[in-house]
Nucleic acid binder design. Sequence first.
DNA 1: ATAATTTATGTAAGTACTTACCTATATTTA
DNA 2: TAAATATAGGTAAGTACTTACATAAATTAT
Lengths: 318, 318
Amino acid sequence: MFQNTINELGELALGSRLKRLSDYIYREGKEFYQLNEINFEPRWFPVFYLLAKGGTLSVVEIADRIGVSHAAVSQTTKELVKYQLVVSLDHKTDKRKRELRLSDQGRELLMKMEPLWNDIAAALNNMIRQHTHHLMAAIQEVENAFDSYGFVDRVSKIKNERLQREVKIIDYKPEYDSYFKNLNIEWLEKYFHVEEYDKKVLNNPLEHIINKGGDILFAEFEGEIVGTCALLKYNDDDYELTKMAVTGKVQGKQVGKKLGLSIIERARQMKAKKLVLESNKILIPALTLYERLGFKYAYKDFSTSAYQRANVYMEMAL
Amino acid sequence: MFQNTINELGELALGSRLKRLSDYIYREGKEFYQLNEINFEPRWFPVFYLLAKGGTLSVVEIADRIGVSHAAVSQTTKELVKYQLVVSLDHKTDKRKRELRLSDQGRELLMKMEPLWNDIAAALNNMIRQHTHHLMAAIQEVENAFDSYGFVDRVSKIKNERLQREVKIIDYKPEYDSYFKNLNIEWLEKYFHVEEYDKKVLNNPLEHIINKGGDILFAEFEGEIVGTCALLKYNDDDYELTKMAVTGKVQGKQVGKKLGLSIIERARQMKAKKLVLESNKILIPALTLYERLGFKYAYKDFSTSAYQRANVYMEMAL
DNA sequence: ATAATTTATGTAAGTACTTACCTATATTTA
DNA sequence: TAAATATAGGTAAGTACTTACATAAATTAT
């Protein structure tokens, strides 16, 4: 009955599991009453019990005490009155209120049920007590926890913490110019050297890229700019992916991939038809990324290239 | 929200409490999806998750795996198909079956939801882990326990054990004559002595009580006769409560009270109008019981009494 | 090969709650 | 004292399941 893969989902299926267990207990409870020839619905229990112990109560008082909506109590008491287990009298002074209490018939039924309730409580208590994890105590703790700090708040907090840990792609702002320059110089100096054309672009990206109809994106992680990538406009159809740089400090965060996907998306938004790039054979990880992004190797006469280090040419149709 | 008197009911209100917690989680789950602008109902989760992981499944396969009825899965998948998150294809060979799997739209939604699911699982896990009683483990244990030995069986067993421990009132049978005699002689010899009239009645209760329109009841405890009480008929209206005797071996089981209540009930059934008894001032506990049962002290001329030991007379109207 | 049974699925109605909306009073505020 | 607000309670419809019953197709027994 309860042995199946929903259990593997753990906390995720907590709601479904609680419902399944609750439904089971209601069903079996009903069967137990029937077996003992008692005309009583398990759903009546909280209201009936409260009236048995608490004397006279109003609808809202009951609802507050058992932690359900007044509508639920209204419906339950309607049934209890119909089956003559509860009597409902108008409040003496407050005409909105009703005074609910057990009828003589209700008291009679109570006498018959009380020993059975003791049996139910004993059986469940026996079972729960034997286990290493106490269900009643666990429910109490979880209820208390949710009372002080709700489900949505808890999950939202975790989500926001995750987003903090995640790489965000953000738009170009002139104040990021120094990051654009330094991130690119970092890797250029590691593998090659900074060419004159690089210097020109890196020193004034606004003039050489943005104002020419291109764009620049940055990757932010934990409040710091950790990567960048630019889109250089050739003409309305053709753009170059260029100046992609990620600091060596972040590893395994897929920063390059996210920048690449974002810049391609940006190119599409700009109605680009074709995206090209130039690179170098020794930059194996970069070339692998370009392939994954959808770029294909193509031929080019590198004598016309803006970069001396270029010996690989790739393009992709958008 | 969760702080109220339902908690005091303990195991008895377990079903209601599980439902309340389950409802809360569904509501909050729904709110979290909405907050993240995701069109997804918490009730879809188990089916959707299974299809996300398990590829292609039929309605019954899903129902078995998540432990709900096939009807529930049928309804859920209908909705999922309606919202185009799942595609349903006829089985190639078995014309009864449907093959369900995520649609492209479903896969797309899955990508958006997976990180949120991780957040939910992490938040709940965080919360539960901090407590001394682990809710998930407790649920698992209770489910396992119910799987091997159902709720109704457990409670019925406890109930039967209680009934075994309880005093039962049973009707007269001639084979109980020796108990009737010995139980009465036991107490008569302790406080007084056995009178001639006692001997006559105790040696032949069938003739002197039953056949004269009276009755005798016995109390049984753990398979043994531990008490008795008789109803002697004077005339159609008047009866005497007599020969009440309880063995000293049973204490605190309310045997006398149960016998008394039963014999009064029996007298009512026989359309008696008045019940009388004779006793002795030194039998304080007995007199207290008679008062509790509703007998009132009255005057009598004891020179006409059948018993030498009688110096107290009581009666009650029925 | 036919009949009986089992399996796969769907639909309708029931259950134990909810939310949303309504009216009728009572209480507080201006 | 009138207007605004709060409280008490009801009804309708929704939710996430259930059971009961239905049909159609597949499998097993005779």
